[in-house]
Design a protein around this nucleic acid. Structure first.
Lengths: 360, 360
DNA sequence: CTGTTAGCGCTTTCAC
DNA sequence: GTGAAAGCGCTAACAG
């Protein structure tokens, strides 16, 4: 059990020797002071070229890597930011995460990801851990937009926070979201322009901020056209979708178009329609909110409202770092930031709504 | 600018006061020693119920949260693990990440995610940062399985490492991968059993370990059946897929089946086949490696070899923590771990291969 | 049960 | 240019 370090090391030091060498070990071996080594690993200013080269060689030999925890303790940043999302497997959030990660990396920071499963209590737990780890900033998709405890904690925290996809209660926290209302209005209006009169809105779980906004958008356009809004909130999975579609089909006055408010709902509806051999868009047209990978591959291809996914993650991260750097000098100056950023959505015309774009 | 802390605080201490209170501030305010507070936040053993309650109240009042960096510095774990993947947006890796995150969380640890874009040099950079942050363990998808520098770094690092999806060079690093070879054999054999004679293998980018394994599996089954292996490595995107399919169709002896070795290739091929109005599976059958969300929704539904995605992430994380805990007592005991774990794949029979399963 | 004390590895005045 | 020394916030002996 001898590590060949000679007699000058105590037992505890020996135990460490196969782990990470420390700055002072480097200093000793290089025959310089710790200050010098510190300077070397921080750019090498104010160090003679000769010493610099020498110290660098020793660092290389020992495989020395600075301990971030020690730096943090000296009051520096942890160089980490936290991302709290409902799920990483969800394409929407994983794309956001990818964009956030890229910006973090560009700012020399790491991304810590935690997932809530849309469980409000997890929001708080996750934040707690993240704060203990002293992340420099936080990007969060609040499971419950209205949670008071969450808002209070976030307001109190001394670090920049920005929410994505959904805003946080009525707080001053900057949020970056898609313009769900306008997107849904555009979608609905498009269906109306096609001449459809009985447009059913399939909401999926209707508790979320995004869904409520989209419902409002739908209602607004429908009412502006003097049509009747028809909501169906029953779709939760494929089975319930099949039931809902069946019921719609069998009703006295079946719909001529469906507007689905979320990805999975769109797909379930599409599958049910397919199963019942309903001609899309001839008998019933379909338009979904949120694009997905094979929307253009299935037949008919599915028209959707596309959210600027990457843009959301990117923008949020950029704002976060802006606030972070602003905090260096003038904390109160951050109030010039807009409180809520709504990014434009985009109607992708494919076949399911009745359009016949060139490239299909 | 007075925070009501009285005169005993220096200017620098005041600057801190709007950030995070420290353990000793809690101790002072509670009128106890730092040890006691430390004990309280670590479970409260060996503290009188009365003191315990009192200290807890002070902690609550001050909104105190222990500083993980300080703990780390005392030699404790950082309670973080690092995950290095080619991309988070990719469904395969995001699902793995989700599984890893869950296990990490169950072990009271956070997940730091970095992405390489399959760029070997990024592997090293990312590891470097992660190690500086002293993650307790590492799960990595090596961009280049054969990279020496990577292997050396990984072998040298004093923390548990497990690779997923691809092994690391010829190293002793535990890896958790799908049984690509056997999966490809099963797929190919299935096509052979259907009676197809000219089965083309569309590889996509063929440099990756997984693809090579799958190519070997294909070749093995093909040769065992005394057929001729036909590889096409030209598919990189939809455009090249269209070209490849066109060429295949126009050849003197067109294929009667296609085995696509990766997700995107399968989809591109499917789209090209669709575009050229080739009847699938009647004229040409199609089977893909790796399942994807709408594989069962498109018409015909696409048969695939499914990888145990969650299982891979879960297993890898579990092994990682096992090694982590094992390291507590007996470092060399970890050698009883199997070096390479291959998880079974599963043939999902849908329509594109010529099958007619009940539920379609 | 409780407090004192000595660092963990690093940065940072402040002298030389 | 360079180094000595003082902590950052916390835990863990080691006394009481």
């Amino acid at each position: 059990m001898c590590y060949g370090n000679g007699l000058q090391f105590s037992r505890s030091q020996m135990a460490k020797s196969n782990a990470h060498p420390t700055l002072s070990q480097v200093a000793r071996k290089a025959g310089v002071g710790t200050t010098t080594v510190s300077r070397v690993i921080n750019g090498g200013d104010r160090v003679s070229p000769k010493t610099l080269a020498h110290v660098r060689r020793v660092i290389e030999t020992l495989g020395y890597m600075p301990n971030q925890a020690a730096r943090t303790l000296k009051g520096h940043r942890t160089k980490t930011i936290g991302l709290v999302v409902p799920s990483i497997a969800d394409p929407f959030f994983s794309s956001c995460a990818e964009a956030v990660q890229a910006i973090a990396r560009a700012n020399d920071s790491l991304l810590i990801v935690t997932v809530t499963g849309n469980e409000p209590s997890n929001d708080l737990d996750n934040l707690d851990v993240l704060i203990r780890h002293r992340v420099d900033g936080l990007i969060i998709v609040p499971a419950d937009s209205q949670n008071h405890a969450l808002r209070d904690l976030l307001e109190r925290v001394a670090i920049p926070v920005v929410s994505i996809d959904r805003p946080v209660g009525n707080s001053s926290i900057t949020s970056v979201v898609a313009d769900n209302l306008r997107g849904a209005m555009t979608a609905t209006q498009h269906l109306i322009d096609h001449g459809y009169k009985r447009i059913v809105c399939l909401t999926g779980e209707s508790g979320l901020y995004t869904i409520r906004e989209r419902m409002n958008g739908y209602r607004k356009s429908i009412e502006a056209a003097h049509l009747t809004p028809i909501f169906d909130t029953s779709v939760k999975d494929y089975h319930s979708a099949e039931l809902a579609i069946r019921k719609l089909l069998d009703s006295a006055n079946p719909p001529d178009a469906i507007f689905a408010l979320k990805n999975s709902t769109t797909i379930y509806a599409f599958e049910a329609l397919q199963k019942f051999n309903v001609a899309v868009p001839e008998t019933i047209a379909l338009l979904g909110f949120d694009d997905f990978e094979l929307a253009s591959t299935v037949r008919p291809s599915i028209s959707v409202i596309q959210q600027p996914v990457d843009e959301i993650g990117k923008k949020a991260a950029e704002i976060l770092f802006e606030q972070l750097y602003a905090g260096d000098k003038s904390s109160p100056a951050s109030s010039k930031q807009p409180r809520q950023i709504k990014l434009k959505t985009c109607l992708i015309q494919r076949n399911s709504c009745g359009c016949t774009p060139a490239n299909s």
